[in-house]
Each structure stands twice: as structure tokens, then as C-alpha cells.
Design a protein around this nucleic acid. Structure first.
Lengths: 341, 341
DNA sequence: CACAATTGCGCAATCGATTGCATAAATATT
DNA sequence: AATATTTATGCAATCGATTGCGCAATTGTG
């Protein structure tokens, strides 16, 4: 905070020998104040470099003009795209955005969410951490009726606004595409199965197999945390099976890449011998060689929608909840395109 | 804000038939309150689900417990890494971080910075927009003595804490490396020259040429905004010169990549016929093919340092300013490594 | 011209937590 | 036992902006 205290409406009032109420009203363009007085006030305020103390205003108005956003990791393309979208919409509506990252740890998430609550954010937008917990910290928001929006990774047992991409269709399309490309044994690297997102993708995968009369072989599905190392370990394991797969649908682009590099180093040709598809369309997936087929998730749009939803709840007291399902797009690139579609 | 108003210290006081002062002190573990009373208060506070209203506390204490951070674009690896570093340190110290992006537009930056001021952030960490302006909005912070830290893109005329990477050495090393690799005519794609960062890189480039007895040819230097398209246009232009370069030092990895793709499509072999080095070590530069040599900037570390500096100013009223110069690291990859070092 | 309606502004309480000073009670000191 | 000291708590002002209510001055109406 500032050493030299800032001018307040009282300073302006004293100078002009009027009351602080009048100053406050004038600055809000309240019609109860005459044009002449208002002009005197605004002109003095300008020359004094007056800036309203938003903390005081917020306290009185019982709102913080702030939206909280919690992501697993800020420094990840998809999440920073979402943040960027939220920020854009929120800023235009006169809101601030405070962000925090959970690092995918339940305890940090709980601590962050409590802090956001104590700061009286007007609403919270969150994509939950991988590490499972009981979500009591989030249920508080529902209990107190503070707008809450989940995006991407949601909590089924909490009824509120949610925005997800169509993970089921994403998983389905990826698998369908691999089948159409003539791959016969398709594995799947799934994420933590406590997250709906990853469950849906897997279900889409299973559905596509079934529709094509391919029996679902559970031994080809690996549940891991989708880190670079996990990717390597998983393909290594899969390729050592008696009957290894000839394609894999990876839960994200990171594992798609690390799998690809591992296989390439083993002399396996992509996509001729082995097909790979990722998920999320990280920027690198377009520029690596071979480029990686993947599912595009509209991160920026998702952020904008999340902000719009929460602003609706905050400002119009919208009561009904919806779950927005944004479309995903299959992007076919080299890593799975052996028929050169 | 909440419909059902939250319990306050007054509610606790009333229930316990004591004063709000006592409650406030007890919750701060003030030794003036007896253990017995404190325990009663804390236990009741817990059972009521009491959470202090930080806005009220902040108003009274004349601090916001909030650090503002402004970046050109959240959704860029380097900047989100910095944000991540700031967030980590700030959170541990009990501060919130509010972020905004300028989209490299001067007007949005001004608007954001004013908003941060009105919100009484305890300190501001900023990397300025490319679009030049007079920086009056930032000088206010100095005038009012609100801690201000520049990172990466700084303003020379404002005396305050700054954190930069050693751009000069970065530019120097890149150029030296290209020379050592036997490239003879080295071009440079420089960014907007109103930013010190890019000036320093260019000066490093010039110095390396000079040290190696190579005359500086201004026609090989292009000043642009370093977008993907700029990169294509620049190499296209350079390659059409009567005496084109055989290597280029690009101001960022984005242009290095787009240049590379353009040249590859023209049948020019990288690095055999033409050497390319970028700047910033974007994640993709490691995984593209050929992989791109670049300069690593420690974004996360920079964020941590920025947060430490500003917390020092806020909490210990540190008066002296320093400019931290973080080391850069040349990462030699395929795009410039024709001698296979 | 008397009364009503409108306009312009101020008083004082409020939001919730904090804190200097005062007071009361308990304990220590001589 | 009387005074000094310590301990425990309360009173009331404060941070800066907002707003319901009321009052006075101005303008309008019959």
C-alpha cells in the first residue's frame, strides 16, 4: 500500500465544501446531483489524480469484482488458453481475475480455494486437480450460493455449471479414424479414471471398437498420469506383450510424442507400422515430425464461455445450471495417416 | 458475493457475550487474550464456518495482499512460465496474484495498469507491451512508491527493480556459434527496436561479428514483430537479395520455425545449406524436426525472482533497486549443428 | 399568493476487521 | 493492608465508499 495516502472522496468534499455523499454520487453520475456540481467535482477529482479505492467500495457493496480461476498448471497450453479467454471476457465486464495453480495436488487446491473464498471472489472457475479428494472445499461454494463453474475436469456430484469438450465423441472419432486407417489392434493410454474427462474418452474408444465389431481387450488399456515418462513406460510395456498393438490412442499429446520418439528409436515407422493419435492439440503436435494427429479442444473459447456463464450467474442471478459441451475436432496429421486421406 | 451473509467476528462476539475486539485479537493469536477465551472463540469460529473477510481486513490495513502481474500474452510459454513462478512464491507468502494481458497493445496496458492501481495492488510485476507509449501509467507507481518490477521487457527511463536475461550475451553466443559452424553470411531477424531486449540481442550479434572480423551488413537485419508471417516474409526477402545470407539468427523461436519451414519447402537443407537459431526455447523447438537451436531463458526462475524482489520491497521496504541479469544458455540443436558438435 | 411537487444536497449508518487507549480484575510487592 | 504491576477485556474510532432518509430551496400549479 502507498505511503502517501491517496486522495479520497472526503478530500474532494472538503476542498469543495460539500459532502462526501455528493462527491460519491457525482462520480457515479447519479442524476440527483446537478450538472454544475458534478462538473466541479469531476474536474477536481481529475486534477487531484483521484482513483476510487476499490477495496472500500467492494466492502460496502459486498462484492469483490473478482473472479477466481484455478487450474492444475498455468504453464500448459490448454490451460493458459482458457485463462486467456476468461481474462478477456472478465476484463471487458470490469472484473479482475485472480489465478492460482493446484499443481494437481489436492491439498494445494483446497488451500487455494479456501483463500479464494476468504477473498470473497464473486465466482470461481475451476478445473480440478488429478489427485482425488472429497470436494468439500467446493461444495461450500454451492452451499453459500457463490457461482461456481467447472471446466474440462468436473465433479459429477456437484450440481453447477459445467463446460466440457465432447470427450466421448473425441475418443470415438480418434478410434474410428484409426480403424479406418486399417489399424487392427488399437491400444489406449487413459488418464486417471477418477476424472470424468478420461473416462469419457475411454468410453468413446470402447464404443468405436464395438461399433466396428472389434472386441475390447482390457490388456491394451493403460491407466497412468500421462506424463512424458508414463508414455514411454506404457508403450514399452505394450510392445512387449505377446500380442502387441499396432496403434495407440494417447490421452494427451505429451504421451503421444514421447511414445512416438520411443518407437521411432526402436526403428518402428510411424504411421506405416504404427499409428499414434494424441489429445489436446498442443502447439508442438503440429510442428513435430511426423506431426501428431490429435483432437483440438477450443481452450480460448472454453475460457470465454466459462466467463460468460459465471458473469450471468453473478449479474443476472441466473439460477438454472447447464452443462455446455463444446465440440471437438479431429485433426488428422502424419502420425496416423497412412492411407494419405 | 454471498446471499446468505457470512458470519463475522461480531456474530461470534455476540454469541459468546464478549466484544468483537477480543474475537479479532484471539483469531490473530494476540497474547493479550487468555488461552481459555481464545480456545472458546476458535472453536466457535470453526463450528460456524467463519472465514475472515479479507476485503474488510485489507481496507483497514491499507494493503491488498495482492500482487499484480501484466504480460503481453498469458498464453505464451515463456510468460506463463514466469506467471507460474510468481504465483508459486507469492502464494507461499500469503499473497494473491491477479493477472492481466495487454495483448501487446499500449491502450489495453494503460487500462489494465490503472485498474490494478485502483485495486491497490501491493506491487506490480510487468513485462511491457511491444507497442510503444510514454509509460506515464507506470511512472505513477514510482511516484506513489508502489513497488514495481519489470521483467524481460523493461523501461529504461524508469528507475526500479528489473529482471532481464542477458540478451546481449545471448545474441553474442548465438552469432559466435553460427560463425564457428562455418556460416559466412549471417542475417538477423530483430524485433521492435524500441524494446531494450531486442536491441541488446542485436548488439550482441554485432559484437560477435566484429570480434570475428566480419563486417556488419545492415541489409541483413530485418526489424519486424516476429510473428509467424513476419518470419516467412523476412526470409523470403533475404533469400531474394543479390547476396543472400547462409544463416539467420531469429529473434524468437516462432520465426525460426516459420523460416525453417519456408526454406525446407524451397528445398534448402537445414543445417547443411542454411543455419537457423531462435530465441526463448519454446517447448516445440526441441521436438520439431530438425530441432531448433535456441537460447533458453529461465522463465520460471525469473518469475520466482520477480516475486522475491517485490515481496522484499513490500515487506522490508527495501529501498535500493537492482537489475538482475539472469544467465542465458545456448542450446545447440540440429538446425545449426552442421559440424556435429 | 398559498400550497404542492420537484430538485439538490447532507446526515449518519453501514460494510467487517483492526487497534490505541482505557478500565477492570487479578496478582505481586513492600 | 495498601500500592504497584500484570493480565484480560472492552470502547470507540478508523479504513473509504455507499445509500436511505430527511430537509431545504427551487419551481410549478390552481
Amino acid at each position: 500500500m502507498h505511503k502517501k495516502s491517496e486522495p479520497t472522496i472526503h478530500d474532494i468534499a472538503r476542498e469543495l465544501k460539500i459532502s462526501a455523499s455528493t462527491v460519491s454520487r457525482a462520480l457515479q453520475n447519479n442524476p440527483r446531483i446537478s450538472l454544475k456540481t458534478r462538473e466541479r467535482i469531476i474536474s477536481l477529482a481529475d486534477s487531484m489524480g483521484y482513483r476510487p479505492n476499490i477495496m472500500a467500495s467492494n466492502l460496502r457493496n459486498k462484492r469483490s469484482n473478482t473472479i477466481g480461476i484455478v487450474v492444475p498448471l498455468i504453464n500448459r497450453y490448454f490451460f493458459s488458453a482458457v485463462i486467456s479467454g476468461v481474462e478477456e471476457v472478465a476484463f471487458k465486464a470490469g472484473y479482475n481475475v485472480v489465478i492460482s495453480q493446484s499443481n494437481d495436488l489436492a491439498n494445494k487446491e483446497i488451500s487455494i480455494v479456501h483463500s479464494m473464498f476468504a477473498n470473497r471472489v464473486d465466482g470461481l472457475i475451476i478445473s480440478i486437480a488429478m489427485q482425488p479428494t472429497n470436494y468439500e472445499h467446493l461444495k461450500i461454494f454451492r452451499k453459500k450460493n457463490i457461482p461456481l463453474v467447472f471446466f474440462d475436469r468436473t465433479v459429477a456430484e456437484i450440481d453447477t455449471n459445467k463446460i466440457v469438450v465432447d470427450d466421448f465423441m473425441g475418443g470415438f472419432r480418434v478410434t474410428q479414424h484409426l480403424i479406418e486407417q486399417g489399424y487392427k489392434r488399437i491400444g489406449h493410454m487413459a488418464g486417471p479414471q477418477n476424472l470424468q474427462t478420461y473416462l469419457d474418452r475411454k468410453n468413446g474408444y470402447i464404443e468405436a471398437l464395438s461399433k466396428n465389431g472389434i472386441s475390447y481387450d482390457e490388456s491394451l488399456v493403460i491407466n497412468n498420469s500421462l506424463t512424458t515418462e508414463d508414455g514411454v513406460n506404457a508403450v514399452q510395456y505394450l510392445m512387449n506383450l505377446p500380442n502387441p498393438p499396432d496403434a495407440i490412442f494417447c490421452g494427451n499429446d505429451t504421451t503421444a510424442l514421447s511414445s512416438m520418439i520411443y518407437l521411432r528409436d526402436k526403428g518402428i515407422r510411424i504411421p506405416e507400422d504404427f499409428g499414434i493419435v494424441g489429445f489436446s492439440n498442443e502447439p508442438f503436435s503440429k510442428v513435430v515430425s511426423p506431426s501428431i494427429s490429435t483432437i483440438a479442444q477450443p481452450g480460448f473459447l472454453m475460457g470465454q464461455k466459462a466467463a460468460e456463464l459465471i458473469l450471468n450467474q453473478i449479474e443476472h442471478k441466473e439460477k438454472s445450471f447447464k452443462t455446455l459441451v463444446l465440440p471437438t475436432e479431429l485433426i488428422v496429421r502424419e502420425s496416423s495417416n497412412r492411407k494419405k486421406v
